[in-house]
């Protein structure tokens, strides 16, 4: 019978690969996020694309699309467990920390994939300047980590509630507000041509936000999960 020696990493990877496999078969969260992102992008580009928007407005539009795309699908990672009734089996088998890390990795992979589709389309449709693209990608990665860290713990909290969708956005907004301000500021400055030194404060803020969110979530998740 099974040899019990696996640590936290392999348990977390087991949760991640299970979620990935379930998502690849249903494509529920991926389709929801992608359709939201593409639809919003299309509307923005056809109505505002030719009007020569400022870099700050372009950055704000980009992160509004990313925020609502995240709202459309990231909560599924816990809601699906509740709705299919698999949450009890998972609770009785898995270490809560492994569950959180596995779900966070899954949400990050999902948003990374969605960003890889939405970001180039956004630059093409809005004709945003691409001189500083590597720095923009760095801000994007830090933003997606922060976005996923915050929404994963909120998704765990709201998964037992009756009106999950509305509650997810309402609870996420105040937590993500600071992150979104930092992201819009950093992205706008990158589009304006700032160097890495020029957005040092914003980058520190983004790293600190993601770090604090992940550590706080790791500490809180056990209580949320076992309630």
């Amino acid at each position: 019978m099974p040899n019990k020696s696996a640590g936290l990493t392999s348990r977390a990877l087991a949760v991640f690969s299970k979620d990935l496999r379930v998502e690849l078969r249903s494509k529920y969260a991926f389709n929801a996020i992608l359709m939201f992102g593409i639809t919003t992008l299309a509307v923005v580009s056809f109505t505002l694309g030719q009007t020569g928007l400022s870099e700050r407005l372009l950055a704000a539009l980009f992160w509004i699309i990313m925020f609502f795309a995240a709202m459309a699908g990231l909560a599924q990672v816990f809601i699906r467990e509740e709705e299919t009734g698999t949450v009890l089996a998972l609770k009785l088998s898995a270490d809560p920390t492994a569950v959180y890390i596995g779900k966070l990795l899954f949400n990050f992979s999902l948003m990374a994939l969605i960003s890889a589709v939405i970001t180039p389309v956004f630059f093409i449709f809005t004709d945003a300047p691409v001189d500083n693209i590597l720095l923009f990608v760095l801000v994007l990665i830090l933003g997606v980590v922060g976005l996923c860290a915050a929404t994963t713990i909120v998704a765990a909290i709201i998964s037992k509630a009756g009106i999950k969708g509305a509650l997810f956005a309402v609870l996420s907004f105040p937590i993500l507000f600071v992150l979104l301000l930092l992201l819009v500021n950093a992205s706008a400055r990158v589009l304006e041509g700032a160097t890495i030194g020029g957005i040092g404060t914003e980058l520190q803020g983004l790293i600190a936000y993601a770090g604090v969110m992940i550590v706080a979530s790791l500490m809180l998740f056990k209580f949320v999960w076992q309630e």
């Binding site: 099974p2 019990k4 696996a6 348990r11 087991a14 299970k18 089996a89 088998s93 898995a94």
Partner: peptide
């Protein structure tokens, strides 16, 4: 999955 997540193989 349930074996792996319980730390087994």
């Amino acid at each position: 999955f349930f074996t792996a997540v319980s730390g087994g193989r």
